[in-house]
Write a protein that binds this DNA or RNA. Structure first.
Lengths: 130, 130, 130, 130
DNA sequence: GTGGTCTAGACCACG
DNA sequence: GTGGTCTAGACCACC
């Protein structure tokens, strides 16, 4: 739950996590974000780090902050489809790039992901969430 | 060609690039790596950074440094399949994780990569690698 | 009408606004200040903030609070000329300081304000106060 | 030299100070800014505070930061006239607004600044910088 | 040495 | 309680 990729600024990972929640529909326009302190506790991270993340999100227009009240997902709902497309595109791009660099063919790039999904599905069925 | 992701240590990106070349068969056991200076020039990066990358690769047993002659891909050829599997696994894992977090279903995770590949293929046909 | 400069305590801006009204003669000794709630509503601000402003004004001897009846401009009329001089002096000082730091000469500091006044006058004639 | 206006974030005052230096021609495109640590020392302020200021300046396109090298005034010289106009306009606006609110007429707004300049000039002649 | 990130902990303005 | 700023001091990547 709380393992951050070393080598990547934590505040960026927090931003990303929140964006994912928005895209996945778990956070909707107008929703209140966890308070800086709560979020910091949840992530076992210093409040300043969360603050930085919220600050940047606001600058990107993803959230809005109201003094003494908290941070909220921006009401501009139309921003969300863009966000989704943009983030998905990035994830896919990195995947294809990574696999190509390793010498995989286009066909393999597809079959490998299928295989991996198959694996994890069977693994789940036989028990381990882990 | 020389755009490094800020927010991720450059030396790690260099290491990764070299590993990819090995896995893809563009660098074979015994092959000489570019000299620190050449590599630095090629990447428009400070020599110290390349130095660091080579150092870490050596520590991982991927390369060997021979005083006065340069760095070479380790002769332990059997290490390569492992490396390939390991890197591919990592790339795939990140992809699935990323897409799942964005709310994509398993089926979509496959079809989206197919679509993206289709796109880039048609783009290439009508345009250029570049 | 209700745009407060973030980065500057709102209660200070409220205090200043009231002082300006006094100096400009729109509020006279003995006049009743708007109730905390009214003022808060007018400024779209939390009552606590207005409360704080009134508190500080009282501490400065500008207003007096009579339990159950409200806040009133202090009767010490002689305080007003001082207040006026002091506030004007501050405003002028900041202006000269600001322009000097930007490299304007003394002559320009005068002519620029003249030009700006000229502009806003013509704008008003052709348009509206608003 | 080092008196910051309480009630205004220090990092904003630092940003402003640098912008003023640019506008006044004391800092030119390509010039290196003092290092974070030097600047912090000079202002008797924590390095993080200076860092924040530089960060924001970069975001505004005023400066550019090169890893491990320092921060530099952006090369886009054409940005400077805009900056100058914008900052001057702001200073003038505040002055006129402030004086108007105090009940001064347009004529007085001009004459008062003239009087103040006259004062400081004679003060200088007779000795006290102070 | 230079910037970038993070922590720990403090104080303030605001609701 | 909530966000915003600041300090002190640490570690890291990079030049």
């Amino acid at each position: 739950m709380n393992e951050f990729d070393t080598n990547i600024p934590i505040y960026l990972q927090i931003m990303n996590s929140i964006k994912q929640h928005i895209v996945a529909g778990q956070l909707k326009p107008g929703d209140k974000l966890a308070s800086v302190r709560e979020q910091a506790e949840a992530f076992s991270v210093n409040p300043n780090t969360v603050q930085r993340a919220y600050q940047e999100l606001e600058r990107e227009g993803v959230s809005e902050t109201r003094r003494g009240t908290g941070s909220f997902i921006a009401e501009k709902a139309n921003l969300i489809p863009d966000l989704a497309a943009q983030m998905a595109h990035e994830v896919i791009r990195k995947y294809i790039e990574g696999m190509s660099a390793l010498g995989f063919t286009d066909a393999q790039i597809v079959t490998e992901v299928e295989r991996a999904l198959e694996h994890s599905r069977t693994a789940q069925n036989s028990g381990g969430t882990h």
